[in-house]
Design a protein around this nucleic acid. Structure first.
Lengths: 137, 137
DNA sequence: GCTTGAACCTCTAGTTGCTAGAGCAATTAT
DNA sequence: ATAATTGCTCTAGCAACTAGAGGTTCAAGC
């Protein structure tokens, strides 16, 4: 059995975060030692690795909860998991698009800044005057 | 003088958000009517538009506070504003890079999912087994 | 067996940028 | 004059943690 610190070291998930996941119901309530400390087995390790991996990929906790539920029904169709992953992918793409627009707008603003005082600083002026923008945002 | 609702309509910033900006010190504490309601002038309108614009571009409130402070010293060099904008641009680019890596990983996972049950669902398996990943994330 | 220090426990509050709601006062329109 | 709308303050909630206080347990060395 692993202590919470050991589990943390092996998964790269911080100790308070593990406790947080337990509180959120992502991790099952851990077994306890005589002195009320958490003890983890191999299954816990695997589940935490799963959670960590999914978080790294940007899945929300609620989605991870759903994915865990699905993984407990191996006979069910994997449509659910697929749908969750595709929705997330769409989400990621949307964020990329928005950030790229921001990137271009910022590039434009910064590259125009040739002044040496705030009076003719394009950064400040562009922010003050929406009319200097290319498009809505 | 404008009421907070009028100001909201003209800038597209919601009423509670305007009050929030005042609380955060981004907006100066507004003048009040006899009945203690906020009243705004042209300067307030301009400042709120500036804030809105900067938020739309993704600047943090703390950065906006700095930009406002800079804009009040028109004789100072605009280096500061430039630095803030460039740092933000770098930030945005970093986020884009990270999201693109996520995008590719998710695409790979989703496209491999040919199974019909969770047992051979690549989405679930990829999340369980880090070894199925291309690279760290 | 005792002591020390690290790791553990629970609980509360803070982070960011708002948003929602309760309960009441002021303003505006009819 | 009255009703509808808008305004006020204050508190709490969101997501996903992180930090700290104040106290307990564990493992190792002497």
């Amino acid at each position: 059995m692993l202590s919470i610190g050991e589990l943390s070291r092996r998964t790269g998930v911080k100790v308070p975060t593990i406790r947080y996941y337990e509180q959120m119901g992502l991790m099952a309530a851990a077994e306890r030692s005589g002195g009320n400390q958490r003890r983890y087995g191999r299954e816990d390790l695997e589940r935490l690795a799963f959670i960590r991996h999914a978080r790294d990929l940007g899945f929300e906790i609620e989605r991870i909860r759903e994915l865990i539920a699905l993984s407990h029904h191996p006979k069910d169709a994997c449509e659910g998991a697929d749908r969750i992953a595709l929705a997330h992918l769409a989400d990621v793409r949307e964020k990329i698009d928005k950030l790229k627009k921001l990137e271009h707008e910022l590039e434009r603003i910064v590259s125009h800044c040739s002044g040496h005082t705030v009076e003719d600083c394009y950064v400040i002026r562009a922010l003050s005057d929406h009319g200097l923008c290319d498009h809505e945002h």
